[in-house]
Simulated scan of single mutants.
Amino acid sequence: MKKIVLLLVCSIFFSCNGQEKKVAKQSSKVVTTEEQWKAKLTPEQYEVLREKGTERPFTGEYWKHFEKGMYVCAACGNPLFTSDAKFDSDCGWPSFDQAIEGSVKYTHDSSFGMDRTEVTCAKCDGHLGHVFDDGPVKTTGKRFCTNSVSIKFIPAKK
Rank of each mutant, 00 (worst) to 15 (best):
V5T: 15
L6N: 13
L6C: 05
L6M: 13
L7K: 14
L8S: 10
L8M: 09
V9M: 08
S11M: 03
I12M: 06
I12G: 00
I12F: 02
F14R: 13
S15E: 09
S15N: 14
C16N: 14
C16H: 12
C16A: 14
G18E: 01
G18Q: 01
G18L: 04
Q19H: 10
E20S: 08
V23K: 10
A24I: 01
K29C: 01
K29E: 12
V30T: 11
V31K: 13
V31E: 12
E35M: 10
E35F: 07
Q36M: 03
W37I: 02
W37K: 03
K38R: 15
K38S: 12
A39P: 00
K40T: 12
L41D: 12
P43N: 15
E44I: 07
Q45L: 07
Y46F: 15
E55A: 07
P57Q: 11
T59D: 03
T59Q: 13
T59P: 05
G60Y: 07
G60L: 08
G60K: 09
E61M: 05
E61Y: 01
E61N: 04
Y62F: 13
W63L: 05
W63D: 11
E67A: 14
E67S: 12
K68N: 13
K68W: 00
G69M: 09
Y71T: 03
Y71S: 01
Y71H: 06
V72P: 00
V72T: 14
C73L: 04
A75Q: 04
C76F: 04
C76D: 05
N78G: 02
N78Y: 06
P79R: 07
F81N: 00
T82W: 01
D84V: 13
D84I: 08
K86G: 08
F87N: 09
D88H: 09
S89G: 11
S89T: 08
D90S: 11
D90I: 03
C91A: 06
W93V: 04
W93Q: 02
W93R: 02
P94K: 05
A99H: 10
S103F: 09
V104H: 05
V104R: 04
K105R: 12
T107D: 02
D109K: 02
S110I: 10
S111W: 08
F112E: 08
D115W: 01
R116P: 00
T117S: 07
T117D: 02
V119I: 13
C121P: 03
L128W: 05
L128T: 07
G129W: 03
V131A: 01
V131F: 04
F132L: 03
D133N: 12
D134R: 08
P136S: 13
V137A: 15
V137E: 15
V137L: 15
K138W: 10
T139Q: 10
T139D: 09
T140N: 10
T140Y: 11
G141V: 12
R143F: 09
R143P: 01
F144V: 02
F144D: 00
N147R: 07
N147M: 05
S148G: 05
S148I: 06
V149L: 06
S150N: 08
S150H: 07
I151A: 09
I151L: 14
P155H: 07
P155W: 06
P155L: 04
A156L: 15
K157F: 06
K158A: 13
